[in-house]
Amino acid sequence: MSKIKVIPCSGIGKVFGLLARESVLMVTQEKCPNETETLCLAHVVTGDDEVVAKIKGARCITMDGCSKYCAKKSVEAAGGEVEHSYKVPDYIKPHRGEDHGTGTYLTEDGWKFVDELAGIMAKTVNEMQEEVK
């Protein structure tokens, strides 16, 4: 069975973009490395043959930093099956007043929030795996 693709937005220069990217990296490298992989959104957008071949028809999770849903829309346009789409602002409300960092640096609060987001996605990965069994 192929790995679930977990794709973050690029959101360069924005803290929500960095939170999205780091949470996806935590899922794919630490929490669910055997069940997931991530791909570069820029390669998806530019139509890189190898990346598009991996995305086409694949089960995907996206994590966007804002309501423009660039990751979700790009993965769908490349033929990926977005089964779950997340957006950083949907989870930030309980964390008002915290300083998560900048577009290039996360604070301790930022890393805690990344771990929370990664936990949400890891739970989804486990549920998706159970559906297949």
Rank of each mutant, 00 (worst) to 15 (best):
G57Y: 01
H84C: 04
P89W: 15
G65W: 03
S74L: 08
V88L: 06
D90M: 09
K72S: 04
G101C: 07
D90P: 13
S74D: 08
G57C: 02
K72T: 15
Y91N: 03
Y91I: 03
G65S: 05
G57E: 02
C60A: 08
T102F: 14
E76F: 02
G80V: 05
A71V: 11
S85G: 14
S85H: 09
A77K: 15
R96L: 15
S67H: 07
Y69Q: 10
A78F: 07
P94R: 14
G101W: 06
T62D: 01
G57S: 03
E83L: 15
E76Q: 12
D99I: 12
T62H: 02
H84P: 03
G79A: 08
H95I: 04
Y69P: 00
G101K: 04
C70G: 10
H84S: 05
R96S: 13
A71E: 07
P89F: 14
E83W: 02
G97M: 09
H95Y: 15
R59T: 05
A58C: 04
S85P: 00
C70S: 12
T62C: 03
A71P: 04
T62Y: 04
G57I: 02
C70W: 10
Y86A: 03
K87Y: 08
K68M: 12
P89D: 14
E81H: 04
G79I: 09
D90R: 07
V82W: 04
Y91E: 09
K73R: 13
E81L: 07
V88K: 11
T102N: 13
D64F: 01
K93V: 15
E76C: 05
V88A: 04
D99K: 10
R59F: 01
R96Y: 12
S67C: 06
R59A: 03
C66Y: 01
P94N: 14
K72F: 00
K93R: 14
P89N: 15
I61H: 00
P89C: 14
Y69L: 13
C60R: 03
G97N: 11
K93D: 15
D64T: 01
C66L: 02
M63A: 02
P89G: 12
C66R: 01
G57P: 00
G80N: 08
V88G: 10
E98F: 09
Y86G: 04
R59K: 06
I61K: 01
D90V: 02
E98A: 08
K73Y: 03
